[in-house]
Structure formats: structure tokens, C-alpha cells
């Protein structure tokens, strides 16, 4: 299964990015192969629709779960329809490595 995590940087030591649509990086983690891919978010500075464009990005990677600090109103209903589970982590001091260890 693939999981997307919003990250402030492109290393395992980077902190979780609290925003979904405008996060700095997406980490795509494959729980079977244990591989991680860091994708810079091209929608970070979009004038509008950063959330839906980011859904397009993570959903096309085939993820089944998305972990972030917060999800906007527009994206929640779309994720529901795509049957992608959303996980909210409120602790902003968590690193990507710590989150991966929980999976």
C-alpha cells in the first residue's frame, strides 16, 4: 500500500508540513517495498485550487492514505469519493522518519 505524507523538506529528518494543498514536499511511501519518494509540490504557490491539484498528484500515485496536519473543506469530499483515507497528525514537531516508524 502507498501512503502520502506532507513534508516541509526532502529528508527523513524533515518535519511534517501542517498544510495539505500547499505543503513543500509530498513523501510517497510504499509499505511493501519500504521505498520512499520525495516530490516537490508544484502547487505550493498556486493562486487557487492548490488542494484539488494536490489530490490529482497524490491520487495519480495510487496512494490509499494521506497524512497531513490539516485538510481544507474542498479536498475532504473529493478524498471521500476516491475512498482515500485521511489521517490528521496535530503534533507539528513530528519528523517524517517518526511517522514512517508508526506505519
Amino acid at each position: 500500500m502507498k501512503v502520502a505524507i506532507t513534508s516541509t523538506g526532502n529528508t527523513p529528518e524533515s518535519l511534517l508540513d501542517s498544510r495539505f494543498g500547499r505543503c513543500a514536499y509530498f513523501v510517497i511511501y510504499d509499505t511493501q517495498s519500504k521505498s520512499t519518494e520525495y516530490i516537490p509540490n508544484p502547487n505550493k504557490d498556486s493562486l487557487e485550487g492548490a488542494g484539488p491539484a494536490s489530490i490529482q498528484l497524490v491520487a495519480s500515485k495510487g496512494v490509499e492514505k494521506v497524512i497531513s496536519g490539516e485538510f481544507g473543506a474542498k479536498v475532504k469530499s473529493v478524498f471521500d469519493r476516491l475512498q482515500i483515507q485521511l489521517i490528521v497528525i496535530k503534533d507539528q514537531e513530528k519528523t517524517i522518519k517518526e511517522i514512517l516508524d508508526l506505519l
Partner: peptide, 24 residues
């Protein structure tokens, strides 16, 4: 979706999912 400049369409060919976000 490629033509839309406002991110108002989500299209996922593999999942056969296409959706208009009217607000955008």
C-alpha cells in the same frame, strides 16, 4: 484537466474518476 488553468477538474484515468469542482 490539462486545459483547465484553475485546477477545477480532477481526472484519474486509472480510477476512472473525473470530477468538476464548480467553485474553482
Amino acid at each position: 484537466r490539462e486545459y483547465c488553468n484553475y485546477n477545477a477538474i480532477i481526472c484519474l484515468p486509472q480510477a476512472k474518476h473525473i470530477q468538476v469542482l464548480e467553485d474553482l
